[in-house]
Each structure stands twice: as C-alpha cells, then as structure tokens.
Design a protein around this nucleic acid. Structure first.
Lengths: 226, 226, 226, 226
DNA sequence: ATGTAACCGAGACGGTACGTCCAGTCTTTAT
DNA sequence: ATAAAGACTGGACGTACCGTCTCGGTTACAT
C-alpha cells in the first residue's frame, strides 16, 4: 500500500498510533471526506478543489494537506469511505445469471453519481500513479476477484465450459464498463447490453445450467454505498 | 461535428472561408499543433498548458484561443494532425490472424508516446464532452469500423461462426485496450495477451479458416504517425 | 536606482517604454498606490497586506506583483506618489528661524499619518536593503540637502559660525526626528524641543543674524501631500 | 513594567511563585532565549519565528507562549539575557574623551550582531508598543543616564560649558546612533565620526579639561555580552 | 493606391487555486 | 502545574495559468 492511502479505511493505522500530542480529529476527517465526495459528485473534477473541500467541510486547508498529499489521494479515500468492502450477494445457482445481474448492477452504479467519482479518480491517476495503484489495490482487485469466483464456480458446476480463460473473462467484462464510463461512446445502461456481453464472453448457453446443491453466499462486485 | 473540431483537418473550412482580411497563418497552426503534441508526450497533462504551448511554438496565446476553444480541442487536433486517417494494411486471409496482429499493433501504439496523448484527450474530455465526441467521431469510430469489417469478412468466409455479435466483438476488443491504457492495472504489451483475447472473443478456432480468394487491401485500425 | 523604484515617479521610465503589448493601466497603478498608502496609514504594517491592497484597490494580486517586487517597494512607491519632490518655502532671512520652523513642520508631519508610513517603510527596509536605499535616494537625501543649504546660507551671511560642520548638523537634526519616530521614547511634538535642538546644534545665538537683502525662495524639507 | 517583561531577569518571579505542580524548567527558558537571540542574529526578523525558536530550542511552542506573549517580548527578553545591566568603565577624567570612546564602543556594538537584534526589537515594537516601552525602560534609559552623568560631571568640573542642555546632548548623541542603525544612510562605524559628533554637540574644546581629582568608576553605556 | 478586415505578436489585466509557512489555540500524555 | 508533542483553524504568502483585453503591425482582398 502506498502513502496515498494513509487516510485509513476501517481498522487501519496510517501513522504509527502516536501516544503523544493531540490525537487526530475524526470529525474533521469525516467532514473532509464526505465534502470531497459530494463535490466530486456534484461538480466533477472542475469543482473538486482543495479550497472548495476546505470551505465546505469547515476545515482548514492545512488539515487536508496534512493527511492527503494530493487531490487524487483524497478522491480515492473519499470513495473508499463510501463503499462497503464487499457486499455479500445471494448466488442464484446460475453463473450466467449471476454475472448478468452483477454486470447490470455495476453498470447502474457507474452510470450514477459514483461513476463520476470513479472517473475523476482515474483522471487524477493519470498524473499520479500512486492514486491508480491504490484504486486498483483497494477497489478494483477485490471486486474483480468476485467475478472470477463466479466464473470458477460455474466451471466447476459444469455450467460453463472448462476451457474458459478466467482471467480474460474478468478483463473483458470489467474493462468494457470502464471504457464506456470514460469514453462515453456508448451509454453504460444500454438495454440488453449486459446479456449480449455475457453471451459473447461465455459462449452460447447450450448446456443447461446445473443448479448447485447449496446456493452459496458470495459477494457482490458492485460498489455499494456504505 | 462540433466546434471542438474546428481545427481543420485537410480540406476542411472551420470558419466560413473569409474573403477579406489576412489569411490564417499556417506556419503558426503547425507550430502550435506540434508543440501541443510534443508537450503532451513529454510532460503529460501537467505540462500541457496554453502558456507552455504558446511559449514553445512562439505564438501568442490569443492566436491559440482564436482557433481552439479549449485545451481539449487543441489536444484532439494535435493528435489528428499526427495520424493518418486510416493506414492500409494487407489482409492475410485469416480474420483471426488479422485481428491478432491488429490488436498487437494498437497495443504497441498505445503503450508508446501516442498513448499518453490519447489518455490526455480522454481526461480532458471528462469535463468537456465535445472533446470526447470529436475524438469518437474522428478517431475511434473509423477505426472500430475496420475491426468490424474484418469480423464481417471472417464470418462471410466461414472462418468465424455466423452467430458472432459483431458489435460486441468490437466493443470487447477495443475497450480492453483503453482500460489498460487508463487504469494501468495490467500492462498494454503483456505478451500473449493478444492471442488469448482474440481466442476468448471469437471462440475456439475449430473451423479451418478459408483463405479468401483475393487478399483484400483493407485498412489498419492502428494510429500511425502521419 | 534599484528595481524597487520602478513604479515611476515623475519623469521616470521604469521599464523601457514598450511599444508592443497592452500598455500599462494607469488607473490600476493609482488605485494600488493610494490603497497601499491608506492601508499603511489606517492599519499600519499589520494591515498592510498585498491581499488587502488588492482587495481595496480592486486589482489582482498579480498586477501588484508585476510592478512591485516586495511590500517594501510598494510602500516607498506609495509614499513617493503622495509627496511633492520639494515644496518651496519662504526663507525668512534667519537660518536659525528657518531651521526651527522647518524642524517643527517635519516633526508635525512625522507625528501624523505620514509618519506611520515612513516608519513602516523603514521596518520593511530592515529585511530588504533596496527599500531603504530607494527611500534614502528618493526621499531622504534631497530633503537633507535643503537643511544643508540653509546652514550654508547662514554661514555665508555670517549668522552662523564658520567652523560649523554642515554634515554633522544635518545628521544631528534629522536623525533625532527619526529616532523619536521609531523608538518613541519622547514625543515628536514636544513643545519647545525644536528650539532647544537648534540652539544646541548651532551654538548660542550670540551673533546678531544679518537679514539677507532679498529673502530667497527656497524649498522645504518637509513632506507635503502632493 | 508591563506584561511584556514577564520574562524575568534574574531573581524575578513573573508568575506568582507556584507552590504546587512541576516547577518551571529553567533549562527550557535558557534554551528558548538563546535560540531566539541566535535566530535574530543569524537570520534577522525573517527567520525569527516562534516555530523556529521552538524547533531550535527543542521546546514546545506552548512553552514559549506560556511565558512570552509576543515575539517582541521574547526578543527583548533574549536581549536582556545577553546584556549586563550596566558594565562599569573607567572614567578618564575628560568628559569629552569619555563620551568619544563611549560612543565609539556603542557604535561598534550596534554595527555588530547585537545591532541586528536591537533593530529587530524596534521593528517588532512598531506594532506592539509594550515592546518599545520595555526596551526603553530596561535598556535605553539606564544607558542614557550614563551619558547624562558624564556630561554632568564634565560641567561640574568646568570642562564643559555650564549652559549645556544635558537632555538635548543625550538625545542628539544617542538618536543619531539609532538612526544610522535603522536607516543605514551612513555606516555606523564611519571613521572620525565620533569625534566630529562630540565636537559638534559639546562645542569646541577651547577650555582645557580639568582632570578630576579622583578618577571615578562609572558605568558604560555600551551593551556588553553578559 | 488605398481602405478595410482579419490576422498575428506581445503583454497587461482580473481572477482562481495552488501548496506552504506561520500564528495562535487546543488536546492529549508524561513528568 | 508544567512540559512536549502535535493536531487544529485561519490568514497571507508568492506563483502558475486561466481566459480576456488592448495595443502596434502585418497581410491581402476589394474598391
């Protein structure tokens, strides 16, 4: 993990818990993070200014700079604060259906306000590699792993062909979301798109899916508000 | 087309061709565009400043603002200036191989300096929809069409399965490139990646490809230096 | 002369009068200088802030920084703007009386608002030698010269002893003013002080002063509002 | 005496001597005062910062603020710590010579590092009258009294004319030092200046000085390092 | 040939945000 | 109680670019 993330998520100790001195004011931390998030949602990158965050949160600029070295770091931190680590979802027993609905949820999320935040983070990351690094480690990878798991389960149950390249499946499904978010050549919520995507990636649904005996409790890849 | 694109490509008339007055100085236009491009390549978005472009090109800021309304517009224009409309390539007769090599070329291009420029354009486009619009129309769509054509030809020749969803194929192949460019979770030039990608999208190569009778001269999707 | 003075006094050409580019806005210059002066008078050094000057004058900070490199330079310039080069006074024919009244006027000026400005300039000058240099050259020296002239005339007319050390006289009379301004150990306008001072410096008035035939029109050392 | 001076000289109890709690740490007091002095000498006003003093002395800012209300108060206190109350000097028997040598010593002191400290104190005093007040009471007045005493003795012995205005003599001699310190229009250590000054103020040395019967031990006006 | 219109360079201008420094204050633990 | 540590609000700093605005000068067509 990088310094970018030293605005701690739950359970993290960013600075060696100091015994001496005034402890960090958590109210300020919260105010700053939620102000940052709100500004990103409402005004996008243009309005996402340290000064604006300071003004809206009622905190001093110095307090912001003390804890987050760059705007990008602040942006990721504000996203992490708003997102559950991994929301559990109910597996239906069909990997196909699971993927479809998961993709739909993700696309919906990205089409909404959180999408603007994510886009902003990626933008900031272009000139600040640590931001992207943190985003990938903290947000992207755990969620990609969920998709991978669904695929793995589908293969194991025989629903999906054994020769399926898991890594590529994840890559294809996920990347297409981000591209639409950023390039906007097509809408993220194009109707029917989810199904076509899954069909194309998994191949035609000729084999009847075998319902798993015990419907497992797995986790969603979607970004949920905390 | 929007005002964003009024930095004309060849043969375009951005402003109602004025009969009176001093004609536009093409030397300045060239100097500005190439300075912009160079700055984008060398310093990325951080160094891509109207003032820097003016300084490097030896032109006045007013001259830049006269012709390009925003930094984003200037960025796209500078890219268009550096890129052939569509470089012709030799079709090998195998759609699979064509796609693989095309993807490899594109990935290579995006991993290089031009990738930085493209990323910058997309970044600028986040707060300036016209920029993305122009980029899609002028750069993206024509190139996507080429992929589509290869697929179409492959289907027609029987090399590729008839039920292939052309639109989705293009989407999958292309988007994954842009995601890697922007998110950097994986390198663009991962070895073997191109093959796995094509295999996953087109399905297993069971049908023996039928070489087309007359190898057609089609066009590359890659962005070539002009 | 130093860069500090490039806010021109009358007849000066601070930057080689440039033919190219937008000419300097004199309204801004005036507004800045008078705002600076007012702030120095009203709030002293504490309130004399580039930001405050900008706010009060309605100009941008950058405009101020473009023309005056430091707060000190701005302070001197604002003083120079408010002061006549050398106000003429009527010589009475008695060097003694002339010096007394001149000292009284100067003390009065220094005890007033302009004194605060001068004190501020000297303070700024402590960490910026150019400021002091400019102040001495532009303000102090010309005025000291006037005292010297009065003394010279008094000696020539026989009113003052020939062995009088002109330089020291000027030094003694002037310095004591500045010390009282800055150290405040004694009030500047102590009644009778002027006479005692002159008496001590010039020696006892034993020689009857010879009235000059034609009372000359000389110049005051005092700082007059322009 | 004012609150400004509650940095105690030796033997003073600024705060009602507390019976309970941790006693004041004298090591901190010393460290702070000498750090302040050093910073004033080395970096002048610019580097004389509470934070810098804290850093250099290894004390906390709060400790400084607890004992000295303002930077100015700290500055005077640091000067007082470095200075003997009144260093004794040997009177030569000639008031003239005594004054000359005394002036020379003072000028030398002011031209050196301590001069920077004094200038800083006066600067601070401009926006903090209590600082000047303390400086005058603690430093200036006792030393001026010494000059006055020399003059008085000179008059009593007949060396100096009886009509000499003691107060004005002190004023003239002392003020000119401070002016040169602050305005820098002339160097403080101009050779021969001391003699000319004394000559001008005391009048020509026509009367042969009467050596006093018993050379008295008086005190110097100069500021000696403790 | 001479307007007239649009171009071009230079550079001043009002602004916004930057990231930093320091001022003072407050809150904690340690002595 | 005093001290050290260090987080906090707040204000000003000086800088970088923004996008706009005059200027003096330069083409090149249209009278």
């Amino acid at each position: 993990m990088t310094a970018t993330a030293n605005a701690p998520g739950p359970g993290q100790a960013p600075r060696q818990r100091s015994v001496r001195g005034r402890p960090r004011c958590d109210k300020s931390r919260q105010a700053i993070l939620s102000s940052a998030y709100d500004l990103l949602v409402q005004a996008g990158l243009a309005g996402f200014t340290i000064e604006a965050v300071a003004a809206r949160s009622g905190c001093a600029k110095t307090t912001i700079y003390r804890w987050w070295p760059t705007k990008g770091a602040l942006a990721v931190a504000s996203l992490l604060e708003m997102v559950e680590v991994a929301a559990p979802i109910r597996a239906t027993g069909s990997a196909r259906r699971d993927l479809e609905s998961l993709l739909a949820v993700m696309a919906g999320t990205m089409a909404g306000p959180m999408g603007r935040v994510i886009a902003s983070i990626i933008v900031e990351g272009q000139s600040n590699p640590e931001v992207l690094e943190t985003y990938c480690t903290q947000v992207l990878q755990p969620r990609r792993e969920r998709i991978r798991e669904i695929v793995r389960m589908g293969v194991r149950s025989g629903e999906l062909p054994a020769e399926l390249d898991e890594a590529v499946v994840v890559e294809l499904l996920y990347n297409t979301l981000y591209s639409r978010l950023l390039i906007r050549h097509q809408p993220l919520d194009e109707p029917g798109w989810t199904q076509r995507l899954v069909a194309a990636v998994l191949g035609p649904a000729n084999a009847a899916p075998q319902p798993v005996a015990k419907p497992l409790r797995i986790h969603s890849d979607a970004l949920y508000p905390a």
